[in-house]
Design a protein around this nucleic acid. Structure first.
Length: 508
DNA sequence: CGCTAGTCGTCAT
DNA sequence: CGACTAGCG
């Protein structure tokens, strides 16, 4: 959804922009939008658990285009699911499942065209696919970051801190989050449409005179967003008109009720929490390596300021301080493990690289040693990729595995079958809402999860680095038949990201 | 006529 | 997820 119909109203302030105008700047990229597009070309394989790297090649080609224009990409992926999104996620799952059944039926009948169409509707973008892309990006020394919750909020955080100059996405939510500069609809050549938040008063489609950010935000929510569906018959225009007239949603709701409109039960509470979610959602701070808020909570807590609907604030129980609707709190170590791409955000367990790369002929160089020996548990001396050791996949060759043997994702070929372990304790009261079980797989009672140890400072970057030195343009990406294949290196692409961020410092 | 609510396409050969 | 369009009010 994003914000229903918002972008159409911003045509007058959106400017055709080429990424080369960001030369030398860091730019945050919404990883899932490229992941999603890249997955269309190989949807059947992804649905059936067959190894493919088509979506990785697509992703890398986009990254190469940015690098070729001197842009420093910071790729941001979505993390854990937010409680307020649970409803819609369930219906999407159902739709995908039905599409998959139709796809298989068509394939059985020999109708490959229809099958492909259904497969494309059935593809699910799973965290392990982001992991594969992250490992490929590691070879290019491109910085990645997995948000604790929504990538949109995380990217807005980076932009508001001036860690990145702009955000590259397809999603109109960014403006509701208050992101100052967004580039939409980027094409293969590097051209997109830039929207600058400061230009908002200049919009010709809507009269935004006298609108502050709170009013803009409430207009967006009223028009319909991911966390709160719009009221029937209310789109962006009516939302604008009503906020313009009444200035806040409580007065709008009062007016609507007075007019005889009936609203869903709990609408005001949900609305208030949605406002807070856009303003204060939990994000990851790369500096403190812990959770923080997109914007600081008011001193004294949410109750102290900005409350339009008091009932939206839990007054007792564990939720009182946890404020789980902002994204349940989590230990700094867990957040850091997720952010670094070491922990699967859907299970809070380390990724099972053996399962993910099963069927991959040419895994990234830096993973080969780790992936090769299925029998010997030599992980002790192995470097950072850490806790993944010997998460035994099949009954065969159970390896000694320090700490966490509880793994059996014994199913067949792929990562798509995530392990359903028990969650970290503090997440339970929220995460357990999610019926996390697909095919009645036995969750193999696990030992306590392996904490991500030390070395998770890869992928990170310092705050407020001077974005000054210009970049040499380098040759366009290799155009050999199998360009960008796993493990091959394209010359001239070591961006200074790694070195500056102390990440994969090229040349020690 | 403006506006909202559904349907289609996203890749890449 | 957005773009496009039929069809509502």
């Amino acid at each position: 959804m994003g914000i229903n119909g918002l972008l159409q109203q911003l045509k007058s302030i959106s400017r055709q922009t080429h990424v080369s105008s960001y030369r030398g700047h860091k730019v945050a990229i919404d990883g899932y939008s490229w992941l999603h597009k890249g997955a269309y070309g190989c949807s059947r394989e992804l649905c059936e658990g067959i190894w493919v790297d088509g979506y990785v090649r697509y992703f890398l080609s986009r990254i190469d285009m940015l690098l070729g224009n001197g842009v420093i990409p910071i790729v941001v992926f979505d993390g854990c699911r937010l409680p307020m999104k649970a409803d819609e996620e369930e219906s999407r799952r159902r739709n995908r499942r039905e599409a998959l059944e139709r796809a298989r039926a068509h394939a059985e009948a020999g109708n490959l065209t229809a099958a492909t169409e259904c497969y494309q509707r059935a593809v699910d973008i799973a965290p392990w696919m982001a992991k594969v892309v992250m490992e490929a990006l590691r070879e290019r020394e491109v910085t990645c970051l997995v948000a604790p919750y929504e990538a949109d909020a995380q990217m807005s955080y980076l932009a508001l801190r001036n860690d990145v100059h702009a955000v590259l996405t397809e999603d109109s939510d960014m403006l509701a989050y208050g992101c100052p500069r967004v580039l939409y609809k980027l094409d293969r050549s590097g051209t997109g449409e830039e929207v600058v938040l400061k230009d908002l008063p200049l919009v010709r489609e809507l009269n935004m005179a006298g609108f502050d950010h709170d009013m803009l935000l409430q207009m967006c929510i009223l028009a319909g967003c991911d966390f709160l569906p719009n009221l029937a018959g209310v789109g962006i225009k009516k939302a604008h008109a009503m906020i313009r007239k009444h200035r806040d949603f409580v007065k709008v709701v009062r007016f609507l009720r007075f007019n005889g409109t009936s609203l869903p039960p709990g609408y005001e509470v949900r609305f208030q929490r949605t406002i807070w979610l856009f303003r204060h959602q939990r994000v990851y701070c790369p500096v403190t390596r812990a959770l923080t808020h997109l914007r600081p909570l008011p001193p004294g807590g949410l109750a102290a300021a900005d409350v339009l609907v008091l009932a939206a604030l839990p007054t007792e129980g564990p939720e009182r301080d946890a404020l789980p609707f902002l994204g349940p709190p989590m230990e700094a170590e867990v957040a850091a493990g997720i952010a670094a791409g070491d922990l699967d955000p859907s299970t809070l367990q380390p990724f099972n690289l053996q399962a993910i790369y099963r069927g991959c002929a040419y895994p990234p160089r830096h993973l080969r040693a780790l992936l090769l020996p299925p029998a010997s548990a030599t992980a002790a001396a192995a470097p950072a990729l850490t806790a993944t050791q010997g998460r035994a996949s099949d009954g065969a060759g159970l390896s000694g595995s320090a700490g966490g043997g509880g793994g059996g994702s014994s199913s067949q070929s792929q990562g798509p079958h995530r392990n359903h372990h028990k969650h970290y304790n503090h997440h339970q009261f929220i995460m357990s809402q999610q019926p996390n079980n697909r095919h009645g797989r036995v969750p193999a009672v696990g030992k306590p999860p392996v904490p991500p140890n030390g070395r998770i400072d890869r992928y990170f970057f310092a705050p407020n680095p001077a974005v000054s030195q210009p970049f040499r343009a380098h040759a366009p990406p290799q155009r050999r038949g199998e360009a960008g294949r796993n493990g091959e290196r394209v010359p001239g692409q070591q961006s200074p990201v790694g070195s500056r961020h102390g990440v994969h410092s090229n040349a020690g």
